[in-house]
Write a protein that binds this DNA or RNA. Structure first.
Length: 414
RNA sequence: GCGACCGUAGCUCAGUUGGUUAGAGCGCUGGUUUGUGGUACCAGAGGUCGGGGGUUCAAGACCCCUCGGUCGCCCCA
């Protein structure tokens, strides 16, 4: 009989359990609580979308679209893609469901995303994000609300120190285009000193040269034309209103004129919450305004802002949540006592206590196992009767007591 | 896509310049001890040394390929 080889997990995916899972769940639960404080509605979206949803909105030339998407043909011959990000799918849902009627909409989602990349710390092929968007709001107040919410979320997760908000503006479309043209001209004049990576970026994504890590690029990048010189009056006012709002709300930020976004659809506000505690993957939460996106998908001109944060990255930064211990652990130390144990355990659980019953293995070792569950109250059922202790938790102790008394009374009536 | 390091029981690891039947701790199973006690002791199960090929009288150790992991580059959350 040939033993079959157990298939492995797909590269870059994770099976989360124990502390890893608890950290993850804690991040999601905190997000769900905070987003309600700001009136964001929940949303559940498909994981698969027509490929065009992403190729049209992210930009064909971006790495995400050109080499990182999980794209396949389904049995009907349609090109389908596992979502690599949330925003495009939300925009698609907004249009196909006629949600213009609800605008402005404050929406939140979380779930798995897929990108075919080389896995490393804080980077997976199936990864998870929390995401918040405001669609149909053109005012800087929307940008402010999202940033204040992000700030509160990080504070409630207890990871705000060591994480800083970096803020920039990319201007409106004319500003951005003028700046971009100036940058391309400038970098072309300095081609001879640019790194190889940046020469490639010059063709595909010249803004990215600004935040190059290569020391060779730094002097040129640092002396490059700045967006401020190309901002229209309107764009300046917009950015001024955003920063004023943040200051009023007490959110700390720093200007980073080299901060750009990877995807083509961003305009005006761009931001990242950055940490140095995650190695190479420093961005913990990022986003900005994407007023052009919905038009790219064939909809009416619709202003929108949003951000997304990697749940795995946040989970790595939070303190380990206290692990969940049962209220009561019941050790059945005598084989014939099992039915009695079942009765007590069921009654305790119905009274709302979490209970772990230890009835397997050597009867003499079950008490040790019960102790090791760290339960608040440890109960032993043996031929010597029912005994339990747990003075440190008087509430649980007295609830257990009540349940046992009621069982005793019930038995007396028979 | 590029680079570096790594891959030995369920887990964490040891394994000497290649040299007999591959080890420890924890965990697991059974037993003894203790008897309101997270104890101690005994015994046991569990490994084609990631997989494939090669060098050699001899490979867990060396070489090649491959698959995975980790961390960088790139990209991004």
């Amino acid at each position: 009989m040939a033993k079959i080889q157990t298939p492995q997990a797909v590269r870059g995916t994770q099976d989360m359990f124990g502390e890893t899972e608890e950290r993850f769940a804690h991040v999601v639960a905190t997000f769900e609580r905070v987003r309600r404080l700001y009136g964001f509605k929940g949303l559940q979206l498909p994981v698969i979308e027509p490929t065009a949803v992403f190729s049209r909105s992210l930009g064909e030339a971006t790495d995400v679209v050109s080499k990182e998407m999980y794209t396949f043909e389904d049995r009907g011959g349609d090109s389908i893609t596992l979502r690599p990000e949330f925003t495009a799918g939300i925009a698609r849902a907004y249009l196909t469901n006629g949600w213009q009627q609800y605008a402005p909409m404050k929406l939140s989602v979380h779930g798995p995303l897929f990108r075919y990349e080389r896995p490393q710390k804080g980077r997976y092929r199936q990864f998870h994000q929390i995401d918040a968007e405001i669609i149909g709001a053109a005012e800087p107040a929307a940008d402010v609300e999202l940033l204040v919410m992000a700030d509160q979320l990080l504070k409630e997760l207890g990871i705000d120190d060591g994480v800083t908000l970096q803020l920039n503006t990319l201007g409106d479309t004319p500003s951005r285009d003028a700046w971009r043209t100036a940058l391309v001209g400038y970098f072309n004049d300095h081609k001879d000193v640019l790194s190889e990576d940046s020469l490639a970026r010059l063709e595909k994504n010249p803004l990215r040269i600004l935040d190059s890590k290569d020391p060779k690029d730094r002097p040129v990048a640092d002396a490059a034309p700045v967006i401020d010189d190309y901002l229209s009056g309107e764009a300046q006012d917009f950015f001024g209103a955003v920063t004023a709002g943040l200051d009023a709300a007490g959110v700390a930020w720093t200007r980073n004129a080299a901060l750009v976004r990877g995807l083509d659809y961003y305009r005006h506000t761009a931001f990242e919450f950055v940490t140095d505690r995650l190695g190479a993957q420093g961005t913990v939460l990022g986003g900005g305004r994407y007023d052009g996106l919905i038009e790219n998908l064939g909809g009416p001109a619709t202003p929108a802002v949003g951000w997304a944060a990697g749940i795995e990255r946040l989970a790595m930064l939070v303190e380990a949540p206290a692990s969940i211990v049962p209220d009561v652990a019941v050790a059945i130390e005598f084989r014939d006592a099992e039915p009695q144990g079942q009765k007590i355990v069921a009654a305790l659980r119905r009274s709302g206590l979490s209970v772990e019953m230890l009835a397997q293995g050597s009867p003499k070792k079950r008490y040790d196992k019960a102790i090791k569950t760290n339960a608040k109250v440890v109960m032993s059922i043996s031929d010597m009767g029912v005994r339990y202790s747990g003075d440190k938790y008087p509430d649980v102790f007295s609830q257990v007591n009540e349940v046992l008394v009621s069982i005793a009374e019930e038995l007396k009536k028979r």
